[in-house]
Design a binder for these strands. Structure first.
Lengths: 252, 252
DNA sequence: CGTCGGCTTGAGGGAAATCAAACGATGTGG
DNA sequence: CCACATCGTTTGATTTCCCTCAAGCCGACG
């Protein structure tokens, strides 16, 4: 564990600068080792030990598992600015793979170098802890969405969540963004079939909430979308600026 | 992050002793501060900062969230031997609460004391990292179960998983254990209604796989149950001894 | 031009939810 | 000790949400 802090940013505005600093330092340290992957590539293979941590520069990446009978599940989606492979530092080989959803560039750093780095620079450790915390919070939210949400709530939640994260990463404004997911992949992520994903998307379009057309998402009525997803959203997503009001960019 | 290792036990048998040692040391260090909770108590309240880490001694505990409209979701279940509150060290206040599922005793330690401890004793850090890794692995598995598994698969998976963990914790043998969950709570955990949970349990009973009667689980046909859950199980659960063959106790 | 991957729509079926009621344990107070 | 309330379980009838199967469509690309 990082020895220098036990707190978290965003609800602790005074740490925001430290967090940004950690991200900047980390990015610099990684900037020599840039790795490209093409859509569909396995960046980290399932059950293969990996001694590298990545920072996604451009493109989308997911952690997914394919069941024997062909069912597929996407556990998490990583967006530009996210670190992935972090818990490979402390846990076992994962039973699932990290796959590029689009063409991707990522910066890489080996565990041992990283450890030197954040021994010297607490802000980098903050950045890592932030990533772990966010990953887990998202995981909990998706678990609740899958367990208790219906199809509309799940998809609305997904759109809002991705939108909010892209805003924080400074990649998008005013409700439009690129989403390199096929409807099949949206289904793998939300636990639905592609047919049903399609119908829900149509409904959202017909009701003027949002359109998802060929990799492009446009959110037309954020408040309504928000209301739809509301029961599923956690307390932070309800009040956080990026889900409606003002905004606050983290990096990029 | 712990500076002294980047690996994981169980698949690295040489670390097993270190892990056990870490658990022992941690338990000793915590043994002064014993906390009791009654069934239903909130041990960690939602969105309340918490500077304490617990090791569950006896009883069951869960992390759960109640939605506005009354729907409830259980995100994780902690069993005796588990550490909880670990990520409160590095992340934000969680949006959900930790609740006692039965009467409970837990050992407690403050973050700052813990940090001193594992600065001196790497094995304690290993124990913490182990917990984080296991928590995450379980979370991923449940996500996949909820996203792609049907009711029978989910419940079979749950029973197997709990059984396996209790075995590892040395709490149970030969397929019988106490499970202080109402059928409603099983539903909250598996994303089903209590009515449907009941029907699935009946089916399992009628087919001679397992009986769940008033807090007591008896697994009668582990191979069949295993086969039922197989598509959902991760690679480790498929091969690990505790899910069928020999066993290897971790602590208690 | 044909093919292929992804999207769209329809028809029908099935798994799980909902609604509703009764039953069984456990506990409590008269 | 019995009446009664409470909590959890069990079962039935009905509905609904989502899946499955199937076919057509559209755009990209060789």
């Amino acid at each position: 564990m990082p020895n220098n802090f036990t707190e978290f940013p965003l609800h602790r505005p005074e740490l925001l600068e430290t967090l940004r600093r950690g991200d900047r330092l980390l990015t610099e340290a990684m900037s020599q080792d840039r790795k490209r992957s093409r859509k569909g590539d396995e960046i980290i293979r399932a059950s293969e030990r990996c001694d590298t941590i990545y920072r996604l520069e451009a493109g989308w990446v997911c952690r997914s598992r394919v069941l024997d009978d062909g069912r597929r599940s996407i556990v998490t989606v990583f967006l530009p600015g996210d670190l992935f492979g972090v818990k490979s530092m402390l846990s076992t080989e994962p039973p699932d793979a990290v796959v590029a959803l689009s063409n991707v560039t990522a910066l890489a750093i080996k565990h041992d170098r990283l450890q030197q780095l954040f021994a010297a620079e607490p802000s980098v450790a903050l950045r890592l802890a932030f990533q772990l915390g966010e990953d887990e919070r998202r995981l909990h939210n998706y678990l609740i969405a899958l367990g208790r949400g219906n199809a509309e709530e799940r998809i609305a939640t997904m759109l809002l969540e991705l939108h909010g994260r892209l805003l924080l990463a400074g990649i998008t404004q005013n409700g439009a963004f690129q989403m390199p997911l096929t409807q099949q992949e949206i289904g793998d992520f939300t636990g639905l079939t592609l047919v049903h994903v399609n119908r829900v998307l149509r409904r959202l379009r017909e009701n003027g909430l949002a359109t998802v057309d060929r990799r492009t998402v446009e959110i037309h009525d954020l408040p309504k979308l928000h209301r739809l997803a509301l029961p599923i959203l956690d307390t932070f997503q309800r009040t956080r600026p990026e889900f409606g009001g003002g905004r606050q960019q983290l990096w990029h």
